[in-house]
Design a protein around this nucleic acid. Structure first.
Lengths: 290, 290
DNA sequence: GCATATATCTGACTTTAGTCAGATATATCG
DNA sequence: CGATATATCTGACTAAAGTCAGATATATGC
């Protein structure tokens, strides 16, 4: 009935009016939207004035005045930055934290009531995740993290769960060659997480070995982020990290039940090699010379 | 990692900035956003001034001034309404149509470039459809239509395709007891389509028979609209239509491969009865006394 | 026909957002 | 130290959006 472009535009119309409604609900607290947005940015931990200005896309004059009005209301205090007295740092006062909490409550209530009117919650949330990831595509940041960090462990948990669903025989980490966290940390290796806003949406591990090569492990992209060519991006980052560590040969193992992974490797310069380990799960092996 | 409310809020943030970007693109044509929105509302067929005002949520003074500025630009003409000379009707001039087309082109380009950067187009579109339907939930309208109308035929096509996917043996309409369009039109029956904006997202047929009962046929809800309790709403509408036609007994057949349908019937006063036709597809039969 | 209701318009006003050109204070580089 | 760059602030301004109290014209019910 509708062509793809009309479907996108139908979505845009729906969302425009929903955003408008959310904005108006923020006006209920007797403060212009600009000031409310600035307060919320500070509440969410953006304390550096330049950072807030950049995030909200404001002129420096306007930003300054918004801060002043929040100060006049007694919600915000500004001090000079420790390392650079030209920069200013904004923090919420006690009253500011209370006001911020009130905005948070408004947002939460609105989100909850939206969810409550829908009986297929998980499908709806998955759709929202997917669109949020697509819309914030340019803002996805790749960060090197400790493989034991909360974000990394979340990714690994999702990764194992997905293998469990996709392998006919299921997946039990303890049977697999679970890499030692130390091997995926500098200087032996690295662990890279793709963050969209505060949400981890993909990862890859570079595991150092003592056999003259390093291994790529735990490549995962959240279902909601597939189609954004993120797999390729994290793999590129892992290869860069490997080069930085002086590694010249990479190997990896995978399973033919994950065809999209195999396709990615083949299209990015990896070549299939014979089995090089005795892990029970993989049935495909690749290597790439850097 | 994220609780449901945070996921909704992440979506809201993503979408807020995307909407802002769309708005700014509209400013490129040298006209304030308010005027551009009014022009687009007229171009999309909202000609009654009160209707535009209502749609855009504007004060009557502001609306009047926007119309005036569009008239001054030579893009819009207003005339008195035929039936009520107090009301005004706005139409685009030739120049107005040209300008409207330019805005349309902007929107289309923006939508296309969003789609182009994503390789899982169909999944992304399905997610957008789902969210658009959820957000415009209160604006879903049930309309009685001819079962041969474009909208009805679209729904039926989707319905048959879904049965084909869900029945192990597939589905071939010609083997089923395809109701005559005449039986699903007044005065023998009715055909109801649920419209979200201009998109049909569900349907149900009420088919008159000569056996002392009418049948419910072709109950379908678009995958993107599931979870909105739309099935229940269209069924209620069909029952109302039946009551209006003096029908006292309803019957329907369905298949256990469609468990959500069976559940709907059981929870809305239908009771299971023995087979009452020789259609090869159904294996469950219900009736309800009105 | 008259009172009342409705739809739009006009004029006078305020608030919010945004722009721009300096001013001020601090940092950095040679 | 001095030149230059950077971060923020201030003042003066404009544009856009929105509000509100009537004015005007037309419709409707008795």
């Amino acid at each position: 009935m509708l062509d793809p472009v009309s479907r996108v535009r139908r979505f845009n119309r729906a969302v425009t009016s929903a955003v408008g409604a959310l904005d108006t609900s923020f006006l209920g607290r007797g403060r212009p939207l600009g000031a409310a947005r600035a307060l919320n940015a500070i509440g969410h931990g953006r304390t550096d004035v330049a950072e807030i200005r950049d995030y909200l896309g404001l002129d420096s004059g306007l930003m300054s005045r918004l801060l002043r009005s929040l100060e006049d209301e007694g919600l915000v205090e500004t001090t000079a930055h420790e390392d650079d007295a030209r920069r200013r740092v904004a923090t919420l006062t006690r009253a500011g934290r209370r006001e911020f909490a009130a905005y948070e409550a408004l947002s939460n209530t609105q989100a909850e009531s939206f969810l409550a009117q829908h009986s297929q919650r998980e499908a709806l949330l998955a759709a929202m995740d997917m669109i949020a990831s697509a819309l914030t595509r340019e803002r996805i940041a790749l960060e090197e993290m400790d493989p034991r960090s909360e974000q990394a462990r979340y990714c690994l948990g999702e990764y194992y769960a997905e293998l469990g669903r996709r392998f006919k025989q299921g997946f039990d980490v303890s049977l697999s060659r679970d890499p030692d966290a130390k091997d995926m940390r500098r200087p032996r290796g690295a662990f890279i997480v793709a963050m969209s806003d505060t949400l981890p949406i993909g990862c890859v591990g570079l595991k150092g070995t003592d056999h003259g090569y390093a291994e790529i492990k735990r490549l995962w992209v959240a279902p909601a982020a597939r189609g954004l060519r993120l797999g390729r991006r994290v793999m590129d980052a892992a290869e860069d990290a490997a080069r930085g560590l002086g590694i010249e040969l990479l190997r990896l193992d995978t399973n033919s039940a994950l065809p999209e992974a195999g396709q990615l490797y083949r299209s990015t310069g990896w070549s299939e090699i014979p089995r090089f380990n005795d892990d029970p799960y993989p049935d495909l092996f690749f290597e790439k010379r850097l």
